[in-house]
C-alpha cells in the first residue's frame, strides 16, 4: 500500500504513525533475542504464524579416533496463534491534527505508543505467568526490597535448573529497577543516562551478569520475569481489512519499524462535519506462547 498523503490531515497522520512506531521501540526491546515473527502481511485473528526457536546446543565429547557428530544448526519452529487484536483508537478534531509536529508527537503519538506497548506486554504477561515462581515460593515479594543479590540469585537458580544461558533476559517494571539503580548509585556505579540526562533502560545497564536487562512501564502491575530464548515467543500481523471497510474518507497506513521489525496498521476516518472529527486507530494482531515453561521464572509482587 503506497504511503500516499491525502490533502487533509494525512501529513499529521504520518507523523503520528511514525512517532508511535519510534516511541514503541523501548517497550518492544524485550523481544530482542526471542523467537518471533512480525508479519507484514495482513491476516485474520485465529490464523497462525511460525516463529523460529533456536535448537538447544549440547557440546559432545569424542576420542581421537572417533568421528565428529553433526547436529543441525537450523532452528526449529513453534506455531503461535494470533489470538487478540491490540488497538488504540483516538478521536481527534481537525484542529487537533493541525497542531505542530512536536505537539502531535507529545500529545498523541507518545501516549498512544505507551498504550500500545502496555497492550502488547499485558498480552505477554498472560503467558509469562506460565513459568515458575522464583524460589518456588508463593509469598508475595516487595519490589522495593529487590537487590543485585536477588538478581544474581535468580541467575543462580536458573543455572541450577540447567536453563541454557543463551538469550537470557530479565524484564522488570520500574518498581524493581528503582532499588537496583539506587544500589548502583550508592556503590559508585554509573547510571545509564543519555546525553540529555534522561534515564535509559530505567537507569540500568543493558546487561547485568548473564541477563539482558529490560526495564518497562508497560506491565499492568509490578512484574519481574526471567527467562531465555526458549521462554517466550511472539507473533504479530497487520489486521485483515475487509473490502467494505475500505470506504471513501478512510485512509490506511501500514508502518513498519526497521529496528524492531513490527508492522502496525493505522486507519484514519473522517467522521462528522462541521466539527471535523477524525478517528485514528492504531491496530495490530498479537499472539504469544511459552515454548518451554521450565525456562521461565517470575516473582509474584506484593499487592
Amino acid at each position: 500500500m503506497p504511503n500516499t498523503l491525502a490533502p487533509h490531515g494525512a501529513v499529521s497522520l504520518d507523523i503520528i504513525a511514525q512517532e508511535i512506531i519510534f516511541a514503541l521501540r523501548a517497550d518492544l526491546a524485550i523481544y530482542r533475542g526471542l523467537p518471533k515473527k512480525f508479519s507484514e502481511v495482513s491476516l485474520r485473528l485465529g490464523e497462525t504464524l511460525n516463529a523460529k526457536v533456536p535448537a538447544p546446543r549440547v557440546a559432545k565429547r569424542k576420542k581421537a579416533t572417533a568421528a565428529y557428530e553433526n547436529t543441525a544448526v537450523s532452528a526449529t519452529e513453534t506455531t503461535i496463534t494470533l489470538d487478540d487484536e491490540i488497538y488504540d483508537r483516538m478521536e481527534l478534531l481537525g484542529t487537533d491534527l493541525h497542531a505542530s509536529a512536536i505537539d502531535l508527537r507529545e500529545l498523541y503519538a507518545i501516549p498512544s505508543a505507551q498504550a500500545m506497548g502496555e497492550g502488547i506486554l499485558s498480552h505477554a504477561e498472560d503467558h509469562l505467568v506460565e513459568g515458575a515462581l522464583v524460589g518456588n515460593t508463593t509469598a508475595n515479594f516487595n519490589p522495593a526490597n529487590f537487590t543485585h543479590t536477588d538478581l544474581f540469585g535468580i541467575d543462580s537458580e536458573m543455572n541450577l535448573a540447567k536453563v541454557a544461558k543463551g538469550g537470557r533476559f530479565i524484564a522488570m517494571s520500574e518498581e524493581y529497577a528503582l532499588p537496583l539503580r539506587m544500589e548502583r548509585v550508592n556503590n559508585g556505579l554509573n547510571e545509564n543516562i543519555d546525553a540529555n540526562g534522561t534515564y535509559v533502560n530505567g537507569g540500568l545497564p543493558e546487561r547485568i551478569g548473564n541477563f539482558r536487562v529490560h526495564v518497562t512501564n508497560a506491565f499492568s502491575e509490578p512484574r519481574l520475569f526471567a527467562g531465555n530464548s526458549l521462554s517466550l515467543g511472539v507473533v504479530t500481523s497487520v489486521p485483515f481489512v475487509p473490502p467494505a471497510e475500505d470506504a471513501p474518507g478512510v485512509i490506511y497506513r501500514t508502518v513498519n519499524d526497521p529496528e524492531t521489525g513490527i508492522t502496525l496498521q493505522f486507519r484514519q476516518q473522517w467522521v462528522t462535519e462541521p466539527t471535523e472529527q477524525y478517528n485514528i486507530v492504531c491496530r495490530v494482531y498479537v499472539g504469544h506462547k511459552v515454548p518451554a515453561p521450565e525456562t521461565l521464572f517470575y516473582k509474584k509482587a506484593a499487592a
Binding site: P2, N3, T4, L5, F22, E40, T254, V255, D257, P258
Partner: peptide, 19 residues
C-alpha cells in the same frame, strides 16, 4: 516519502530525513 511504497523504506526515510 509519499512515493515510497515499501513501509520499511518509508520509515527509514522518515527517520533519516524527515524526523
Amino acid at each position: 516519502y509519499q512515493s515510497l511504497e515499501n513501509p520499511r523504506e518509508a520509515s527509514l526515510y522518515y527517520e533519516k530525513h524527515i524526523r
